[in-house]
């Protein structure tokens, strides 16, 4: 398994509860990868860009970004654009995980290069299921360096 890097899940979610639920949900579906949570787009960007004061992205490691759209200061779409136009970052898979189901928003995200778009269902069972499936998906993602 030397060929495979450790995959770190990045959760960009301004809502603490949501972030908590996502973490718990992923854990329950068997995703054991380490999770780093960000409260907004700027924080996330700083981490990815290496401008953050504390922890920054390790180029030796692989990342997956779970991105909420509605976030203060810098929203998910803006961050998506930045990531997907950056040569170092554009390989990072981005899964939009958001309450917004506006088709225009969805289209925009795919246009900017998101890999998957998942709507947060209000019904927790469904939400849990989504997270479960997503977790299974994450387990099979292999990022080749």
């Amino acid at each position: 398994m030397k060929n495979y890097k450790e995959l770190i899940i990045l959760v960009a979610e301004d809502d603490d509860g949501h972030a908590e639920l996502i973490k718990a949900g992923l854990l329950e579906s068997g995703v054991c990868n380490s999770i780093i949570r960000f409260k907004n787009g700027v924080e996330t960007w700083d981490f990815l860009n290496g401008t953050a004061e504390k922890e920054i992205r390790d180029p030796e490691k692989a990342y997956l970004l779970l991105l909420d759209i509605n976030m203060p200061i810098m929203d998910g779409v803006e961050l998506l654009q930045k990531v997907k136009t950056d040569n170092d970052l554009k390989e990072i898979p981005v899964i939009m995980l958001t309450t917004t189901d506006d088709p225009r928003e969805v289209d925009a995200c795919y246009k900017y290069g998101c890999n998957m778009y998942i709507t947060k269902p209000v019904q927790f069972d469904k939400f849990a299921e989504v997270l479960n499936r997503m977790g299974l998906f994450i387990q099979i993602v292999r990022v080749i360096n």
């Binding site: 509860g17 949501h18 639920l21 509605n70 947060k120 209000v122 019904q123 939400f127 849990a128």
Partner: peptide, 15 residues
């Protein structure tokens, strides 16, 4: 949209 988020939480954490 905005009412949804707290509701997700309420539901999620209740569960």
């Amino acid at each position: 949209h905005d009412l949804r988020s707290p509701l997700v939480n309420i539901q999620g954490f209740s569960k």
